[in-house]
Design a binder for these strands. Structure first.
Length: 242
DNA sequence: GCGACAG
DNA sequence: ATCTTGTCGC
């Protein structure tokens, strides 16, 4: 029998109301582990994860691409198509994308050393963004790398690759992420802890997996793959309907 | 009531 | 995020 290597060590109902979703976040956020990894150089493979959607059908197309450093060439990929049962609500993204991403991860034959998500981790109103959520469910190292801000205040980082400024909760002054410049003359990205590493290490992962574009290579590849399977699915649907 | 708001 | 053409700039 084939062992399922990538499966959550804990789970919960995904068929919930927005109110219940917030309660789950407030409960699970206590399990986020910000202990630094003992040795970042032991991270050999990074999985980029992303989801695209079909406007009409509301279907989710999840993609995970496992890459190996130092060049971050893809070594394995997996996808999943699932109809969304939850709407997009700022702060509750993981309840929309989570089920499809979990299914895609379950298809992998090799466990990546770390998950890199297209979204926030701790830089979230309840400190439990997508990267924290799946990191905790899989009990696996995870990083959040978002293109836009969800919450927190910050200054603009210097226009030099690697430059970053703290993203803080203005009320508590808590450090929740790092606004990080990956390329000169390009808008910075929002990096935050997902699970089982430090903010410095999360930043380092994003910078190391970045090549010549704004976003880390694993995320770019997952983004492309999710779009590919979506377009393929929509084309197949057209051909069967006509 | 008004503005903000990952994907 | 998706729907969409061309267009400005390195």
């Amino acid at each position: 029998m084939m062992a399922m290597l990538m499966r959550p060590v804990r789970n919960h109902s995904w068929n919930v109301t927005p109110l219940e979703a917030r309660q789950i976040q407030e409960s699970l956020c206590q399990r986020v582990d910000v202990t630094p990894l003992p040795d970042l150089s032991q991270i050999k493979t990074v999985a980029g994860l992303d989801v695209s959607y079909a406007k009409e059908t509301n279907r989710c197309y999840a993609a995970v691409v496992v890459t190996r450093g130092p060049d971050w060439e893809p070594i394995e990929q997996a996808t999943a198509m699932l109809d969304a049962t939850f709407p997009y609500v700022p702060g509750l993204l993981s309840f929309r994308e989570g089920p499809a991403l979990i299914q895609a991860l379950s298809m992998l034959k090799h466990a990546p050393d770390l998950f890199l998500f297209d979204g926030q981790g701790l830089a979230h109103p309840r400190r439990f963004g997508l990267a924290c959520h799946l990191g905790v469910l899989f009990d696996h190292p995870a990083v959040g790398c978002a293109k836009r801000r969800l919450t927190g205040e910050h200054d603009i980082p210097g226009n030099t690759p690697g430059a970053w400024t703290p993203l803080r909760d203005e009320q508590t002054n808590e450090l929740i992420g790092a606004v990080t410049r990956t390329r000169r003359n390009v808008k910075p990205v929002y990096v935050s802890i997902g699970h089982q590493l430090s903010l410095d290490q999360a930043i380092e992962i994003v910078l190391q997996t970045q090549t010549r574009y704004r976003l880390p290579e694993p995320i770019r590849m997952a983004h492309r793959l999710s779009n590919e399977i979506r377009l393929a699915d929509l084309n197949a649907e057209d051909r069967s309907t006509h």
